[in-house]
């Protein structure tokens, strides 16, 4: 069945000719790209480019109209929970009465099945995920008492307890200051060295350009994918952002902004 034996490895994520949308409205058209295992990959594109749609498809929350999605060689509709996931922070109610460790434990819920409660093993996994993101001391705090950077790390700890090898993160940098952002990137890089594959939707092109291994530039279709330096050409960016972006390269650093 799987005729794609051309790659040296199984792809962490292999999207092939995917089209999708809502209510007859097309959001993605003929999207094709691959991400190799053990890398830090960015998903970038303007608002309305279909990033959220693509994320839903990879998570198995939305069925594509056509095309194929395969995660670590497993084709078909992705199993819910097989991909670790972190939603956008503004989708989360931070005033909600839950502690940090409650939130992290939620990553185990999907795998438990209805009615079953998390057990000792689930709590151990949650505790080690909290330790991994250096939040053990905060375990009993109400989630809203955390700082912006700590909130991201709590959500990442929750994604870690899902134990997927592919992690999908939606806008983890939004609203963070530079120090918190660098802290998060070094956490991502160390997760990659531990064998995780991170696929991160972000608006921060400069950060992808400097620190990521791969980039997918999306605007309804894939405009370019590969190494960031090859993807973020003036030509491609102009196509994706309709000439609204400015690219400044100076030495090692790149600034891409509106």
């Amino acid at each position: 069945m799987s005729e794609r034996a051309d790659g040296p490895t199984t792809w962490a994520l292999d999207i092939s000719d995917v089209s999708a949308g809502y209510d007859g409205h097309k959001a993605l058209e003929g999207v094709t790209f691959r991400i190799e295992p053990g890398c830090l990959a960015g998903l970038v594109g303007p608002n309305g480019a279909g990033k959220s749609t693509l994320i839903k498809i990879v998570l198995g929350m939305l069925k594509p109209w056509s095309g194929e999605v395969s995660i670590f060689g497993r084709a078909g509709k992705p199993r819910p929970g097989s991909v670790s996931y972190t939603p956008q922070v503004d989708l989360v109610d931070w005033q909600f009465p839950v502690t940090v460790s409650d939130v992290v434990l939620m990553g185990r819920y999907g795998g438990l099945g209805v009615v079953r409660r998390p057990g000792v093993r689930d709590r151990e996994i949650a505790a080690s995920a909290l330790e991994r993101v250096r939040l053990t001391a905060m375990a009993d705090r109400q989630i809203g008492e955390l700082s912006g950077g700590e909130r991201r790390r709590a959500l990442i700890a929750r994604a870690l307890t899902q134990q997927g090898d592919l992690m999908l993160l939606d806008e983890p940098f939004a609203g963070l200051d530079a120090a918190a952002q660098h802290d998060l990137i070094s956490l991502f890089q160390s997760l990659v060295t531990e064998g995780k594959t991170l696929f991160i939707a972000t608006h921060d092109l400069s950060c992808v350009d400097e620190d990521f291994d791969h980039a997918v530039l999306l605007n309804k279709h894939v405009i370019a994918f590969g190494r960031p330096a090859d993807v973020f050409t003036t030509e491609s960016l102009n196509e994706a952002y309709d000439r609204h972006l400015m690219v400044v390269r100076s030495g090692q650093s790149t600034y891409i902004g509106l």
């Binding site: 819910p80 939603p87 909600f96 939620m106 998390p118």
Partner: peptide, 20 residues
Amino acid sequence: FYKELLFNAFDPTMAQASGI
């Protein structure tokens, strides 16, 4: 169904993505 009610109230997107 405490676990499901809690998850769905706190973070419905993630709950759905987890197969709840």
